[in-house]
Design a protein around this nucleic acid. Structure first.
Length: 98
DNA sequence: CTAATGACATTTG
DNA sequence: ACAAATGCCATTA
């Protein structure tokens, strides 16, 4: 089981309509490799299977997205997450602590 | 094995 | 508040 695999599993735990951060994912895995988490999600071999779009930066901004940040924003809004000028509103509310 | 690279995070200027 | 500099950790070349 590689690090990336664990990342995907953790990601899959995030409920619809909530978001989490790269750092939080790393913390849930028992380390602080938030950079590595980003790399794992970027590869993302399980594209629609694992909801990688629910993972954002710690400051509430969306961060990057392999298929374009635009798409990511739309996906999140579709799940009921409001975004204001590239930043998530009520970030503290929708934040999902693993 | 060493070096380079990020969908990051925090601190400083 | 914003931009730049540092630190971070696993992966990959």
């Amino acid at each position: 089981m590689s690090f990336a695999e664990r990342v995907y599993l953790a990601c899959a735990r995030i409920p619809k309509g909530r978001v989490s951060t790269y750092g939080e994912i790393a913390r849930a895995l028992g380390c602080r490799a938030y950079r590595a988490v980003g790399n794992a999600l970027n590869k993302n071999p399980f594209s629609p299977e694992v909801p990688c779009h629910r993972v954002v930066k710690a400051d509430g901004s969306l961060g990057g997205f392999a298929r374009g940040a635009r798409k990511k924003k739309e996906s999140l809004e579709r799940e009921g997450i409001k975004i204001k000028n590239g930043t998530i509103e009520d970030f503290e509310k929708v934040f999902f602590r693993l």
